[in-house]
Simulated assay, not measured.
Amino acid sequence: MTTEVTQLTYDELAALMKKGAGVTVEPSDLESRADAPFADFGLDSLGLLGIVGELENRHGRALPTDAERCKSPRAFLDLVNGTLTTGA
């Protein structure tokens, strides 16, 4: 299976939060408060785990186990995008 390497954006993260956890948040709010804990946006660890699973399915590769323990949008995007870029 061929997967295109792309960068996960705040827009896509907001869409994944809505789809995977039923949490509605504006992408601009995620970006402006990128270091705020996910809990401030209403996303719990189970919701984040669902997002990790969706991304793994979408890209056909496992994300690091640290992904589900990321505490903020910025930390999550940095980890995911670093993984997608390096293929690690």
Rank of each mutant, 00 (worst) to 15 (best):
D66V: 12
G82K: 09
E68W: 09
K19R: 15
R61Y: 01
L63V: 04
R61N: 00
F76H: 02
E68T: 13
A88Y: 08
T2I: 15
K18E: 08
A75Q: 13
A34S: 13
A21N: 07
A67C: 12
S32Q: 12
D78T: 14
F76M: 04
L43W: 02
A75T: 07
E4Q: 10
G47A: 09
S72I: 14
L49D: 00
T65P: 08
G20F: 00
A39Q: 06
G22M: 10
L16N: 11
T2G: 00
D40A: 11
K19V: 13
G50D: 06
L16K: 08
Y10K: 03
G47I: 12
V23H: 02
Q7Y: 12
A88S: 13
S28G: 00
A88M: 05
T6Q: 14
L46N: 01
P64I: 08
V52D: 00
V80S: 09
A34L: 01
L43K: 01
E56I: 08
D44E: 07
A36W: 01
L77V: 04
A14H: 03
A14D: 02
I51M: 07
E4A: 10
R33D: 04
G82S: 10
R69P: 00
T83W: 11
G20D: 07
V5F: 06
R74F: 03
T6C: 09
T24G: 04
V52Q: 01
G82I: 14
T85Y: 12
L13E: 05
L63A: 00
D44W: 12
L84K: 14
P27S: 08
P64D: 00
R61M: 12
D11C: 07
S72A: 15
A67V: 13
V23D: 02
A34M: 07
A88P: 00
D66K: 15
A14F: 06
T85I: 15
G22F: 07
G20M: 11
K18F: 09
R69N: 05
K18I: 00
D40F: 05
S28T: 10
A88E: 09
L16S: 06
F38Y: 02
P37F: 11
L16M: 06
L48Y: 02
P37R: 12
A75H: 07
T65H: 11
S72C: 09
L8M: 10
P64M: 06
L8D: 05
F41P: 03
A88D: 04
P64R: 05
S28C: 00
L55S: 02
